[in-house]
Each structure stands twice: as structure tokens, then as C-alpha cells.
Design a protein around this nucleic acid. Sequence first.
DNA 1: ATCCTACAATGGACCCTGTCTAAGTCAAAT
DNA 2: ATTTGACTTAGACAGGGTCCATTGTAGGAT
Lengths: 138, 138
Amino acid sequence: MSDLLERLRGRGWRMTAQRRVVAEVLDGEHVHLTADEVHARAVERLPEISRATVYNTLGELVSLGEILEVATDHRAKRYDPNAHRPHQHLVCASCGAIRDVHPDGNPLTDLPEAERFGFTISDVEVTYRGLCPNCASA
Amino acid sequence: MSDLLERLRGRGWRMTAQRRVVAEVLDGEHVHLTADEVHARAVERLPEISRATVYNTLGELVSLGEILEVATDHRAKRYDPNAHRPHQHLVCASCGAIRDVHPDGNPLTDLPEAERFGFTISDVEVTYRGLCPNCASA
DNA sequence: ATCCTACAATGGACCCTGTCTAAGTCAAAT
DNA sequence: ATTTGACTTAGACAGGGTCCATTGTAGGAT
């Protein structure tokens, strides 16, 4: 079942009903929920859980490296539990659908030394935009 | 001086004091201001200019394709007058400094057909993150 | 089994970014 | 000089997110 919960327990993360629910909501593949969506789903299982707790918990999971924060649009951040395998995102410009994708090669190596300006680069984020099959045919 | 103003005039864009000031503030290389930063600089030259006008004007310039909207952090959008030459961004994770960069190759071609899920891809945005020389040595 | 205490949860105020609206102003065509 | 539709304004509003003082509780110590 929940790999995420296992890992968190193993790391000595203090477990509470709220944290468990948040972790459970996030568990799975191709999950890209906003904080408020996570909250809405968490409330179904634990009606008293507060928005602040969801935000706090998400922030911690991000710090722990267990989930990723992705900014695919200019609106709410989304949280991606697929932090294990590096990947990028493909976003429909019309309906906002999001897919995890795996481009060939490593985009990091595409940036020549002369274009690094002395920066120590540690990460690269790639977002492909276009129309999903549904929206393209509409 | 202002290429941007020239082009806008040539396109029959109705010129007002406010629009001129916004265009002037944005003119230049490696400019990546937020809307409120644009407003702050515009106010120095034209004290009565309103926030709404700055937002409206920026939105129009984006629609006209004269400036780009970039989301390098999870906070305010930034506006990049360098809409002529395709480029990507390099961002310091510590101080937020931004540089325009030009990676080798075309990231669009790095996404294999099997990873496109029927999407019609029209654009790709790449953000490199790391530490700038200043922040790395601190 | 109970007690303690550091850590977690709560909810409501607050902030930042951005949008909208109704009313007033102005560029530029006539 | 007049006209008029486009532009500007101030301020209200909304969404997303953070902060904080208070209350609650997990889990180690006894």
C-alpha cells in the first residue's frame, strides 16, 4: 500500500492522524494536486483537519524530499509524490491536464559552460505545453 | 533608444503617458521585473499611474508578443522584454537572480513520440536552478 | 499505565498577487 | 473644436498562501 507512509515512519517522522491522511491522499501515480485539493480530500476522511496543517505538512514533505512542488501554471502550486524517478511535465494549455514525461538525455548537459555564468547548477525543470487530444479536437 | 516603443508605435498602438512609461521601464537586456516592480519604477516617472494600468499594459504587451511572462519562482510573474530571441532562464535558488541562457539543441525534440500522449506540443519552458557565484561563496 | 514535554494542529487574521468594476479622462480621427 | 471609443483610476474583491497564539497530543520516560 503506502510506500510513502513506510518511508516516513522509517525516518522517525512523528505520525499523527492528520499527517497520515495527507500522505495517503498523495500516494499514487500521476497525482498532481493543489494544496486545497489535498485539503478537500483530506477533509473527507478527517473532517476537522485544517488548511494550515495541510500546508505545513506539504511543506515538510517537500523539505524531506518525499514530494515535489511543481509550478505548471501561474496559479496554485501542485504536489507530486513521484519524487523517486526524475521526470518533467507536459501540460495542456487549455484544460490544465498534467502528465509526467521522460525526455531523452539530460537537459542539464545541454547548457554549455559559457552559458552558466559561474552558477552551480543543481536542478532543471522542464515544462512542455500544448493541447491534449481532447482539447485539440474541440 | 527604445526599440520597444518604435515597434509599438509602428503597430498603431494607442500611445499614452502611462503606456510609454511602462514600455520604457521594460526596455533593456536581462530585465526580469515583477508587475509591482514595474509599477514602482513607473511611479518614479509618473506618480499618478495606477497598479491596474500597469497590469493591463503588461497583459497587452504579452498578448502582442512584445514581452514574455516568466514564472521562475512560485511567487510573482516576471516580465521579460527579450521576446525576440528564444532563450531559457537560469535562477539563483538563494537570491533569485535571473539570467537569460541559451542551451544547445531544441528541448522540444528531446520528447519522444511515445511520451507525448497525443498532445500537440507548442512550447517548452526550461528553468535551470542553482547558486550564483555570490551565493555559492557565502 | 501514567506523566511530561516537545512537537503538531487549529482557526482566524493577515499578506501578496492579481482581477474587476464603475466612473472619469483623453488620444486622435473628423 | 468636437466627438467618441479606448484608456485610466481607485478601490473593492478574490485566490493562494503564511503567521501566530492557543490548544492538543504522540510517544519516550517513569
